[in-house]
Nucleic acid binder design. Structure first.
Lengths: 330, 330
DNA sequence: CTGAAAGCGCTTACAG
DNA sequence: CTGAAAGCGCTTACAG
């Protein structure tokens, strides 16, 4: 591979001039610029970005910590990150953490080792050994740590769950099951809170026995639904904290001979592409997945470059999408 | 941040010795080793990997070119890549190309600029300006370019499609629609070939009017099915080239009043997690998605390190999974 | 086993 | 507008 030195020799100028021609062409005379560009073409020179990054002390790379890349919602978030990163001149390193603290720390350490300039964390953990030492540029998106000083991009999960519960209650349901995510997730807690608020406003009481735990996967939704529907008097509606669990729940309900929504209404969350194509199409909360990514990346860009972001706590809009998996209580 | 120089001063040794303590501790006396390690702890020294990479002329990073990261099959492949890369000491850069040649080239160029040591391409394109100049370490996985000299990891798509078609034919279907991927894809062509082979072996003729084109998305499957089922005499079975299109097709069939599989059998390909939970559960071909990734990464590792890979053309096993979306012709 | 020294390919004040 | 020179933080022959 040709280096900047090879180019400078052929062009008959110094390496500084070649460098300048590349980075600040207006600071170079037209004549010299042509000389250099010709030499670049002749040698098929490509600047060594690794050397440049090393010299300028920035990697122009960010690392994204994602608990599960195969989750369709996160995939879309990452797509949003990648597109914006590309536009802003950053490369994206993939850190599939499986939610493991050890892997989160390993990947987050890349900032200390100059391999990355910043971090986007999609899980509700602080990915540092010392939780008080969040000195790295980091944005916490999607499921966010409550009360940390990390900047966030999130949904108003309380309000969204509240609106969903309200919709269910408006259909006449009073005995409502809930399939929630794992207990230590901020998203889970917020959505549960919204659910409870709607119950309360409707004068209904929250029955902890109606709450089942899943892990956001299809089978976990099916298992939870099985428990709920095996009760002597099963609930007439189930609110699920994501679409996968809702799809698993509906599948299980059908298997057990329940009709959806005639016997039981089921709702999801996220509005993944499959939601609309499922039978019945899922009533759910749509979220602008790509925007989580693009907003997080833009904010991180400001943080890395010591600009004050417009906002350090972005709340993205949601939308209740009513389809056919919910119906009036019979 | 502390540098290797800071550590060396505190430990009272040369930087070379600090470097050695890190990379070849057995070449350093126990006493010195302790001195150095203490100094490392005291200064909280973290080696600058960017500098190390620059110095050793390798980035320990690979870039993966994926047409669509939100595709559930590719997500799993990438998960396999990431896990194996991590194990082998490589970081993974994400190149969401949207199938665009321009973006493929941009990302593939990272090898020339020292930002990456190798490439995994998941699409059937040669991602270089000059298609004959595949000098970069590259592995072509999933949808592979036919007749290029890039090493490959793929499925025997001809055999898989053949087996699927055989299954459909064995149920008595003779008028079979096919919803295929885009025309220029190797996967598409191979699967079509397998389909035709089974027809031929069964003495059936291939009817080009029964072939619809999709783009592997849910809506495209629905649209294609709509065309197929609007025919005066619609086919009694539809073979789809992936699960999303099959799910879209079933959804559309149901909308149009067809029962699946009673009126029409529908098959998918990939066995994504939703396939099993759909109604009816999808008859499909399962592929070991993560293994595409791990095999590709292992092969790329050998290529990067100038070891001869065990095989340069890996064929992964598939499995016909018969569920309830296929049934006997009535 | 250890250290002095060269050097990886760039960028960037500085001087002219 | 241009060049000489320093230097980013490491690694690695080489010599002892």
């Amino acid at each position: 591979m040709a280096t900047i030195r090879d180019v400078s020799k052929i062009a008959g100028v110094s390496v500084a001039t070649v460098s300048r021609t590349l980075s600040k062409p207006d600071k170079v005379s037209e004549k010299t610029r042509k000389l250099v560009n010709d030499a670049i073409k002749q040698t098929n020179y490509k600047p060594d970005i690794l050397a440049r990054n090393f010299r300028t002390r920035k990697s122009s790379t960010i690392v994204v910590l994602v608990p599960d890349i195969a989750n369709p919602f996160f995939s879309r978030v990452i797509r949003g990150i990648e597109q914006t990163a590309q536009r802003l001149g950053y490369a994206v390193l993939l850190g599939d953490t499986q939610g493991l603290r050890e892997r989160e720390i390993t990947y987050a350490n890349m900032v200390y080792t100059s391999q990355a300039d910043g971090i986007i964390q999609l899980d509700c953990h602080i990915p540092f050994e010392d939780k008080n030492d969040c000195t790295s540029p980091i944005v916490n998106a999607c499921d966010c740590v409550r009360g940390s000083n990390m900047p966030t991009v999130q949904l108003d999960n309380v309000a969204a769950a509240k609106e969903m519960a309200k919709h269910i209650i408006s259909l006449g349901h009073t005995d409502i099951g809930i399939i929630s995510g794992p207990e230590n997730s901020t998203i889970t807690n917020d959505r549960l809170r919204g659910f409870k608020q709607s119950l309360e406003e409707a004068g209904l009481s929250y029955n902890p026995a109606n709450r089942m735990f899943g892990d956001y996967s299809l089978p976990s939704g099916a298992m939870a639904a099985s428990d709920l529907l095996s009760k002597p008097i099963p609930p007439t509606a189930i609110m699920c904290m994501n679409d996968e669990m809702a799809i698993g729940a509906i599948r299980q309900a059908k298997k057990m001979g329940f009709s959806v929504p005639d016997d039981i209404s089921v709702t999801g969350f996220d509005d993944i592409s499959f939601a609309e194509f499922f039978d019945p199409p899922l009533t759910t909360i749509s979220q602008p997945a790509e925007e989580f990514g693009s907003n997080a990346m833009e904010m991180l860009f400001d943080l890395i470059n010591n600009k004050e972001p417009e906002s350090k706590n972005i709340l993205l809009p949601f939308n209740l999408v009513i389809r056919e998996s919910t119906g009036n209580k019979k």
